[in-house]
Write a protein that binds this DNA or RNA. Structure first.
Lengths: 238, 238
DNA sequence: AGTCGAACGTGACCCGTGTCATGGCATCAG
DNA sequence: CTGATGCCATGACACGGGTCACGTTCGACT
């Protein structure tokens, strides 16, 4: 199960499947309680925007249920998706901590449960709870790491095929389920969105999927994708 | 002046020109003293490697004097420069905080003075000093921000020219000095290294500089570059 | 069933740039 | 002076992939 209920999150993190970097987990009872008292729980429908790029930060958003798309946009309308945030993540964290503008736009991909904490409340919470502060640092480290992975993908790839292969292998680790035919995973994104994740065009993504199908490396049926030949993908990424 | 002496760094930060995100500044006397007692000062010659990509972290490096190149390398030898670290930065921070491997290689570009702090010492220092912990979070935020800028540059640019223009404008903000002919800045990197910063080839960088000279946007004499037409560069970046 | 819009597939064309190759121009050691 | 080395400049060429165009498939709704 995903995080079952925001209000109980701090008590039952042993039983939920959130990653260990989840901010809720393993806080002391006092810190947990302080956090409880300053957070505001909201439900957002699909397509809602939590915050916009270049907006001045109002606070941080703890994602409890649902996925959120984080993207940036250039002046001429070209868009790049930074990542898809999963439950357990703290969005807008670096903007609040370093008192800068939000650097990305956060849009829900499905119905989401979100706990909002006002900037001032969050900062004074951090000032009083050193342990939480350390967890924030770890969370930021994690963000930095995913940014680094994307930089590698964008900057070191020789072709769009290589970037796509990297992305698919990444998804395997996160959401893949092993079957006898290969690793199966549900891709909840359109070709258009995949294109925006690897900085290429929709048409190219279509063509690359065709190519990988031709090479028998993958198999597509509807929105379920089966990776038949992991080694082939790894060979592409060198 | 740059950070004049590692041992006095915490006392005279008011007078040094390090950025406000500098980790040394504005710690309480107790925290400063604790930091003093666990740091080890070293001098490295040009070309020395502080740590390698994929190495397990030994500690963090406070850069006091000199510049350090942070780069990543793909399996087939292609290299990408993440950024050039300036005095005041804490290198290897995210690896130590989140207990992962170093994600980049750090190589000195010139003679550098560096304070090293062992991982265990640094973590227990953070545990005992909440204020330092918050500064670490801010520092990581800053790192995340520069990573984000690079992602924008790599992912949203339509051409190598656009990426180069972005890089030059970036340098203007950091190291540029206004003159009557335009903004002058010393480029301490070879074309090869510039190419590795924007993910292109050395030849392309040469060609692009020629093109910008032809457009009268810049002027090159030796290693000093004069930006004659900032607006032209901004137009390129949209 | 039919209709409509969103998402996907694929061909044609052409610009940008990676790669290879060659040569100029510094600095430095012998 | 001469050769070596590192850095920069520039031409030729091939190819990846962005863009435009059009057709197909799929699911949602009436």
């Amino acid at each position: 199960m995903r995080l079952p209920n925001g209000l109980q999150a701090t008590e039952n993190c042993q039983t939920c499947d959130l990653h260990s970097e989840d901010f809720f987990c393993r806080l002391s009872p006092e810190a947990s309680q302080a956090l409880e008292s300053i957070k505001l729980t909201n439900i957002y429908p699909k397509g809602a925007v939590l915050f916009f790029e270049e907006q001045s930060p109002r606070g941080v958003f703890m994602l409890c249920r649902g996925r959120v798309k984080l993207s940036v946009c250039s002046a001429d309308g070209k868009m790049l998706i930074l990542r898809i945030a999963e439950p357990g993540e703290l969005l807008g964290l670096s903007a609040v901590v370093s008192d800068r503008l939000y650097k990305a736009t956060a849009e829900t991909l499905e119905t989401c449960q979100v706990n909002f904490i006002r900037k001032e409340d969050f900062l004074s919470f951090l000032r009083e709870h050193g342990e939480a502060c350390f967890r924030v640092a770890q969370h930021l480290s994690q963000n930095y790491h995913t940014a680094y992975v994307q930089i590698r993908s964008l900057g070191l790839s020789h072709s769009a095929l290589e970037k796509l292969a990297r992305l698919l292998l990444d998804w395997c680790r996160g959401n893949g389920t092993q079957t006898e035919q290969g690793i199966r995973l549900k891709l909840g994104l359109t070709h258009e969105e995949i294109a925006k994740m690897i900085g290429t065009s929709r048409e190219t993504v279509s063509r690359l999927f065709s190519e990988l199908k031709g090479r028998e490396a993958i198999h597509l049926k509807g929105s379920t994708l089966i990776i038949r030949d992991t080694a082939a993908l790894e060979a592409i990424t060198n």
